[in-house]
């Protein structure tokens, strides 16, 4: 792991802590006898993020100056040694999931889900066209049947509402 990213995360923590403290200052206080009050815990938490983030930032900066090594210590490397690592892939998959969330209600589960699965499988290098399409379609239909039809969990159907209405009956 890169120590410079570790440093960036510490800085993000400090900024997030300051934002959290600002949020705490906006909390309305009631006239109760509670000495800690509504903002006591949030303030303590904000201070933990700011002070903790600063300590980590200073610690990482000092170790960077000492060793000039970009690798962060105290972090377990959980990647398998024998296989190449892609740092972009998890973010692309996360992005595909975020698009699925945004598309779920407008275009419905039956259209959004095969697209998400196909994108995920493609990103995970499962690229044989027939198995890819089969897994995407079969999983989507199986989930729809189990959840929507059998378990009565209403899934959004978007433009396929007339068709889904007949299937649900």
């Amino acid at each position: 792991m890169d120590r410079r990213v570790d440093l960036s995360i510490a800085v993000v923590l400090v900024v997030a802590g300051l934002a959290w403290l600002y949020g705490a200052s906006l909390i309305r206080r009631t006239e109760s006898v509670d000495p800690i009050g509504e903002s006591g815990f949030p303030i303590a938490l904000g201070l933990l993020f700011v002070v903790g983030g600063l300590i980590i930032a200073v610690r990482v900066a000092l170790s960077l100056r000492r060793s000039h090594q970009p690798a962060a210590d105290g972090v377990d490397n959980t990647d398998e040694d024998a296989h190449p690592v892609s740092a972009k892939r998890p973010l692309l998959i996360w992005g595909a999931c975020a698009l699925w969330v945004l598309a779920l209600e407008p275009i419905g589960f039956l259209l959004a889900t095969p697209l998400l699965l196909a994108a995920e499988l493609w990103l995970l290098e499962f690229r044989r066209p027939i198995p890819l399409v089969s897994v995407a379609l079969v999983t989507t239909i199986a989930l729809f049947v189990i959840l929507d039809i059998l378990l009565k969990v209403s899934l959004p159907v978007g433009p396929l509402a007339p068709f889904a209405g007949r299937v649900r009956l």
Partner: peptide, 9 residues
């Protein structure tokens, strides 16, 4: 899952 997605094998 995101961590596991870093590698494909």
């Amino acid at each position: 899952l995101l961590r596991q997605a870093r590698q494909v094998y």
